[in-house]
Amino acid sequence: MLEVTNLDVRYGAIHAIRGVSLSVPEGMVVTLIGANGAGKTTILRTLSGLLRATGGGVRFLGDEITGLPSHQIVKRGLVHIPEGRIVFANMSVLENLELGAYLRRDREVKSDLERVFVLFPRLKERIHQSAGTLSGGEQQMLAIGRGLMSRPRFLLMDEPSLGLAPLLVQGIFEIVREIHRQGTTILLVEQNAHMALQVADFAYVLESGHIVMSGPAAEIAQDPRVRDAYLGGA
C-alpha cells in the first residue's frame, strides 16, 4: 500500500535520512522504532508532504506522491497524527474534530464523530472545552480522534504514547489495535519499543537515518541486539 524507496532527506548540511526503503502492505500494522534523533519523525513528515525529500520516492496505492503538498496527500487517505499532540489550542474540542473532517463533504461526518466519542468518551464530556486546557492524555486522544475524522485509509502515528502515564499508554495501544481492527493500515513510530512490537505485525529498526534491521515484529522482539538497545535488556 505504501512503498518507500531509497528515501533521502537533508536539513541543510545535516543528512538526516540516508537511503531508507520500507513498505507497508494493506491491512498491517508496521512499526518503526529507533532512538532519539534516529530520524523517525523526519520520515513521517516527508511521507505526509511537510518535508521535501532530496532523493528517492514514495508510492501510495500505486501512485507516486513524492513532492505533493500535504493537503493533496491527506485527500488520498494518508493521514499523519504528528508528534507532541499538536491540537489547536485556541479552539474547542468539537472544532478540532471538525477540522479533521475539513476535506470531507459526505454525510457520515456526524456518525464518525459519534465513533470517535465511543473510542474516547472523555472527549464527549469536554466537547466545548478549549483544547489548550485539556490534560496531556486528553490532548493525545483529541489528536488521534481528529486524525480519525479525516477517514484515513492509512495512518501515520508519531509516538502516540509519548509522555503518558503507564495506564494511559496501555489505553492508547488498545486504541491503536481497535483502529486497526476497524480496517485502517498503520505505520507506528515509537520509542516504547516493547509496546510497539506487541501491536505490530512487522518492524523496522532505524539508526542514524539507516534501516539497520527489519522483520516480523515477534522476531525483532527476540533479537538480542534489539533487546539490549531498545527493550532495556529485558
Binding site: 511537510l50 493537503h71 491527506v74 504528528p82 499538536i86 471538525e98 477540522l99 475539513y102
Partner: peptide, 25 residues
Amino acid sequence: TRIGKAMRAVSFSRDAASLMGIPTD
C-alpha cells in the same frame, strides 16, 4: 465559515493545518 476556520487553524500552526488537508497557500 470554512475559510475562516482554516485561517484560524493556519495561524495556530501551518504544519498542523496542512495535515488537516487545509491548502495553506
